[in-house]
Every structure is written in structure tokens, then in C-alpha cells.
């Protein structure tokens, strides 16, 4: 396990614990990612996908288990303390960028990810040059609009900017929480191509949650299916390349029947 970039062991999170409505969002979840892994995550609503990502960034605190990032235990570390090593993009473009601030100000904040912020000018000419280059590389023409407010951008442009913000400071881990879900198909494809390129260029260890089985099969080197707060299917390499959407749906139904017959009944 020491070689793993990210290791979740026995992570458990119950919402509304101690009430009749208690929901086990994560149930003794085990998952390990090697450095450079690009893992896609699928599962039905309530399978625990988002809760897992939120536990990794620290927005949700597990009651049991441990989360280790590059060897360091971050299970109970505060959000802002672990943020230096983790980039995350949410489904809603409004969540990952700051609308009233300019493109360059947003990127300047992201360039300082996890570092101490002092009284030095944020957008220096040198930084502006670097941002122009980085923005030109994503090919949306944003390099000519550095001082435009992010609120004036389209949803796709905002998610592309969020991607650049998440990867600018080379985090150890990139978390994508259905980051294409609010985009139209054409824009989603463009943003996904960009995602794949940035992940490859940075050799970033990545977890991508998606509702789209086709996307989950097409991208990444490994696919994980979650159900009832646990990993129920974990496919990599050639096996993953051989997956089809109907095959995956079949596996999904098998798995949900199995867990329903043992775990759920035991818990109830």
C-alpha cells in the first residue's frame, strides 16, 4: 500500500447517524490509486461517489477508516490544509470559479494553491505572460480576455477555466465530480478532450465521477463501479478496454441484486 498515491481504507460515513433515517453513504470503502492512475467512477444515485470525493477533499469527515494521500494521513485534516495537493471540479461551473473576479484573478488565486498568501501583487506581468500561454493552449481564445469577468463566460468556458485552475499548480490528485454534466454534448466533448490532455501532460492521478457509462469506458485506464457505499467492480487495462455499455449495465444489475440480498438485509 505504501506505493499508492491515494489510499482509502475502511472509510465509513453515515448521514443522520443514530436516527431511523440513517443512510450509510460510505460503507467500509476500500480504494487505492497508483500514481498516474486515471480512474473513472460510476454508480447509481446514492452509491457514494460524490461523498467519496467530498471525504477526500475534507468537506465530509468519515467516522471510521483512513484516507492517505502520498503516504500522509489526511483523514481529519482541514479542507484548506490538504487543498495544496488536491484539485477538484464540481458539476456546477459556479462552484469552481469566482464570477465577479476576472479570468486572470481567478487563475492567480489558483496559481497560489496551498501556498502562503502575502502582500505581493497577485497579477504580475510575469504571471500574466504565463497565463496567456496556458490559456492559448486550451484554444478558447480566453488569452485575449484576461481581464474579463468570469461571470461573462459560457458554462463550457467556465469549466475549461476551472480545469486549468485545478491543474495549474500541479496537484497530486485531481478530482472531477461530474464536471461535464451541466454542459451540452458538443461542449462536454471539447472539455473532456481538454481534461484528458491536461491529465496526460501533468501525469495527474485522477478520479472522475460520471453518470455516463460510455464516458467511463472511453476515458482513463481503470473503471470502478460503486454501490451502497462500496466498490463493487474494479476493472483495469485490457479488461477495461473490452467493456461495453450493455455489459456494464448487466454487471450493474447483477451487483445490485447481490448486495441487496446480503448487505442491505443484514443492515436492516
Amino acid at each position: 500500500m505504501s506505493a499508492a498515491m491515494l489510499a482509502l481504507e475502511g472509510v465509513t460515513k453515515t448521514f443522520m447517524a443514530g436516527t431511523p433515517n440513517a443512510v450509510a453513504a460510505l460503507d467500509r470503502l476500500d480504494l487505492a490509486l497508483a500514481a498516474g492512475d486515471f480512474v473513472t467512477v460510476i454508480g447509481s444515485n446514492g452509491a457514494g461517489k460524490s461523498t467519496m470525493l467530498r471525504a477526500i477533499v475534507g468537506l465530509v469527515e468519515p467516522e471510521q477508516g483512513s484516507i492517505r494521500l502520498d503516504g500522509a494521513d489526511i483523514t481529519h485534516e482541514k479542507v484548506h490544509r490538504r487543498a495544496g495537493a488536491i484539485g477538484r471540479i464540481a458539476q456546477d461551473p459556479h462552484e469552481s470559479t469566482c464570477a465577479v473576479m476576472s479570468i486572470e484573478e481567478n487563475l492567480a488565486m489558483a496559481a497560489k494553491r496551498g501556498q502562503r498568501r502575502g502582500l505581493a501583487r497577485a497579477v504580475t506581468p510575469a504571471l500574466r505572460e504565463r497565463l496567456r500561454t496556458e490559456l492559448a493552449a486550451i484554444g478558447l481564445g480566453l488569452e485575449a480576455r484576461l481581464d474579463a469577468r468570469v461571470g461573462t463566460l459560457s458554462g463550457g468556458q467556465r469549466q475549461a477555466l476551472a480545469l486549468l485552475m485545478a491543474t495549474l499548480a500541479r496537484p497530486k490528485l485531481l478530482l472531477l465530480d461530474e464536471h461535464l454534466a451541466s454542459l451540452d454534448p458538443k461542449t462536454a466533448e471539447a472539455v473532456m478532450q481538454l481534461t484528458d490532455r491536461l491529465v496526460r501532460e501533468g501525469a495527474l492521478t485522477t478520479l472522475m465521477v460520471t453518470h455516463n457509462m460510455h464516458e467511463a469506458i472511453r476515458w482513463g485506464n481503470r473503471l470502478v463501479m460503486m454501490h451502497a457505499g462500496r466498490v463493487v467492480l474494479d476493472v483495469a487495462g485490457a479488461d477495461k478496454a473490452g467493456l461495453t455499455v450493455p455489459g456494464l449495465v448487466e454487471r450493474f444489475h447483477e451487483v445490485s441484486r447481490e448486495t441487496l440480498s446480503d448487505d442491505r438485509v443484514l443492515l436492516a
Partner: peptide
């Protein structure tokens, strides 16, 4: 910038380590 972003999008600026 971090102070300004705090009022505007606290989740984002925390996720950037502030």
C-alpha cells in the same frame, strides 16, 4: 484576492488552500 473571494465563493477559495 483571497479576502474578496471569501465573500463571493467560500467553497472555491477554501479548495485553493485558503
Amino acid at each position: 484576492l483571497a479576502v474578496r473571494a471569501t465573500g463571493e465563493n467560500e467553497t472555491m477559495i477554501r479548495s485553493l488552500g485558503v
